[in-house]
């Protein structure tokens, strides 16, 4: 059915374009997420110094910075709809699927922007081995896909709860735990210089995780979005 599939694409694209335009007007989520990441990174670099950090420590620190920065901004895309009262209009105008895909794409872009800024800074501020940055990129990309894929549905859930505050991190952490463990293990191997081949099991795990979480989100999103 070609007409229907183009309909889904164009609707999702419209939702994505709308969120991008709103974000570029205020830059609220982007500023929050970037400032949070840079502050944590600076604190880490200040307090630990620049040399003598093992690959294990470096990989754990990197993903802690990314995790908490993501927690500070990723819920915004749904919370904004509820706070400004536009959720109802969006619910009337579009089916759940394009809304979810548009919001997921927006969160993915937001996290990618953050990763593009933070990763070079991380290599500058700590003595992370810059020669391994190329083999680190696939791990980073799968991490960004997994993080946005697993948290977009949680963002939708907390936007509909009456108390939003710390709930996003509380609900996201157990779901992200397997992802974070695999990401830290893979990053440690890459920083240690053993190359991507050694981290193949972790990469497969990360890929499977992202696929499963996005599929489950697509199936469940309509129950969150519609009353």
């Amino acid at each position: 059915m070609p007409p229907r599939s183009t309909g889904l694409d164009s609707k999702a694209l419209a939702v994505y374009a709308k969120d991008m335009r709103l974000e570029l007007r205020s830059r609220y989520a982007l500023n929050a997420i970037l400032m949070f990441a840079i502050t944590t990174l600076a604190v880490v670099s200040f307090s630990l110094g620049q040399s003598g950090l093992s690959p294990k420590l470096l990989s754990a620190l990197f993903w802690i910075v990314i995790f908490f920065s993501a927690m500070s901004g990723l819920a915004h895309v749904f919370v904004r709809e509820e706070e400004t009262g536009t959720a109802l209009a969006l619910r009337l105008m579009a089916d759940p699927d394009p809304v979810y895909i548009g919001k997921l794409a927006f969160n993915f872009s937001l996290l990618t922007t953050m990763a593009v800024v933070v990763t070079p800074l991380f290599f500058i501020f700590t003595d992370a081995p810059a020669e391994h940055i190329i083999s680190f990129l696939p791990v980073l990309a799968l991490g960004v896909i997994g993080l946005s894929g697993a948290t977009t549905l949680v963002a939708a859930i907390i936007s509909r709860a009456s108390v939003k505050g710390a709930l996003f991190a509380v609900l996201s952490f157990p779901i992200l735990m397997p992802l974070l463990i695999a990401l830290v293990a893979a990053t440690e191997k890459v920083f240690g210089g053993s190359g991507l081949g050694e981290a193949l099991a972790e990469l497969q795990f990360l890929f499977a995780y992202a696929v499963v979480m996005i599929t489950a989100s697509l199936l469940l999103f309509k129950f969150v979005w519609q009353d």
Binding site: A185, A201, F205, M213
Partner: peptide
């Protein structure tokens, strides 16, 4: 929805993680 979504991650923890 949350309980179903969170339960989806359990196989990753129980079956996949011990291999890593």
């Amino acid at each position: 929805v949350y309980s179903i979504f969170a339960f989806v991650t359990v196989p990753f923890l129980i079956f996949v993680l011990p291999r890593i």
